[in-house]
Design a protein around this nucleic acid. Structure first.
Lengths: 257, 257
DNA sequence: CGGAGAGGTTGATCTGCATCAAGGCAGGAA
DNA sequence: TTCCTGCCTTGATGCAGATCAACCTCTCCG
């Protein structure tokens, strides 16, 4: 259970001032609450940074100087125990807003699992702007509320579900998040109850999945293999899963058998 | 792991329109963001209800018609799996605001563990008022952010801590929450690092504690007994714990030994 | 092309906590 | 008082998932 991990240093490549107006992530993010004129104002505060895969860009306990908005790539958010045990509390992808804590230090760390682009704001300066734009503050409250609901769902998973149910839940939630990731054209309201095969990408390692689900690498691997032999999924490559019957998997995730 | 539970009906005793001005819970709640004039306005929307111990007043999945503000007593918030497994996601006491979800249905259930007084607002009507009082909306964002941090801490507990560490964490967090509960006089910033004995009350049952920590009743009982034999705590009664060395317990809660 | 290293899979064994089982204890009703 | 009834404790046993240990399979780089 206890495994120590290296702590990569926080280094970032600052790129340029942000062109919010043409931002691809805007439709998915809190920034969308503003109209074009206000976006201009926001733009002046934002700095876009690039983060390499494996790079830690938020260190738990460090002074919380910035807010972040993910515009490309995926990060894992995590908390550590002194002996190195790790709990991943979530994955952040395009449109995710980070750094909501009221405290003056970050309550969690964040590390890129894929190369990322991140929009960075000074906390103090964004706070001033937020007072001018109540629409954005309202949007942030919505985001926080949704994350709270997701967090409660994850507590149910971690506290009461079996390994099988955890993996099933994970795959189903990945599948549910899909349309926001690739179907930019269709404006359909998320085909969650689809039956046909569904391709899910897993940019994170088995170790990350294990630390997210409160399991070990071995149990994750074994359980996925078992799903495969049961014809619930296919595993074309380690980072890609094909769901053959989403409804069945969804049932499994809540303990139906 | 699977135990079915009875589902008590939702019945509430409506009392009267709320006198927010003299509300004892106000210093602890979001309402404190408003000045006396605005409080008057808020008062007109609030209805105070009494809830008996054991009564469910929020049913998971029901239409989310109300916001709630706890003014007295304690509630457990929980999510259920179809087979009856339960995860308690938190306890709500004086000052706690409930019902933040954006969704149109409640994402969790709530049941009183002690007799309660609750301040109830119509969601739609409060929303209108919130637009007028950005200070309160801002306060809600703070509350949500803090709960998010607490939720992440709980995920770490549920995903990665041992039974001993979970119980230690639970007792320590109960002790940390103490000053807000009984020390109204002193304005000290929470004596978390105290060493002397510290009295903690546990209004919830062992079953509730188990469902909050992702354990069984038996493990909770055994672990507390072990703490007692190790002279870390005393147990004058089942609903009361005396912490003999908070610092030691706090160390235990993060895996130090 | 080969070799190294990181990540993934599979098998054998162990163990912390769950499950099953039996009392104990305190408070309320008759 | 005695008898419930709900909650808690304690003991014996079982098992899901952790741990320990190979081995496989990529991918990258010389």
């Amino acid at each position: 259970m206890a495994q120590l991990r290296a702590r990569p240093m926080v280094v970032e490549a600052v790129r340029t001032t942000a062109p919010c107006a043409g931002c691809e992530a805007r439709p998915f993010s809190v920034c969308n609450a503003l109209d074009l004129r206000d976006i201009e104002r926001l733009s002046s505060l934002a700095v876009i940074i690039s983060v390499d895969a494996g790079r830690t860009f938020i260190e738990e306990g460090d002074p919380a100087e910035f807010f972040f908005n993910v515009t490309a790539g995926t990060a894992k958010l995590f908390k550590l125990l002194p002996d190195g045990r790790r709990q991943i509390t979530g994955f952040a992808s395009m449109g995710t807003f980070l750094g909501l804590a009221v405290s003056s230090t970050y309550a969690f760390g964040a590390e890129a699992v894929e190369p990322m682009h991140i929009c960075r704001f000074s906390r103090t300066r964004l706070r001033v702007v937020l007072d001018e734009f109540p629409a954005m503050e309202k949007r942030l409250l919505e985001v926080a509320s949704n994350e709270l609901v997701a967090a409660q769902e994850q507590m149910l998973l971690l506290g009461r579900k079996t390994a099988r149910e955890r993996l099933a839940s994970f795959l189903v939630s990945r599948a549910a998040a899909l349309p926001a990731q690739d179907t930019l054209l269709a404006d359909s309201p998320a085909p969650i109850d689809r039956h046909g095969p569904l391709r899910v990408s897993l940019p994170m390692t088995r170790s990350d999945i294990a630390d997210y689900l409160g399991l070990t690498i071995e149990t994750v691997s074994r359980t996925l293999t078992r799903f495969k032999t049961e014809r619930l999924i296919e595993i074309p490559s380690a980072s890609e899963i094909l769901i053959r019957d989403l409804a069945l998997l969804a049932g499994l995730s809540t303990g139906m058998r």
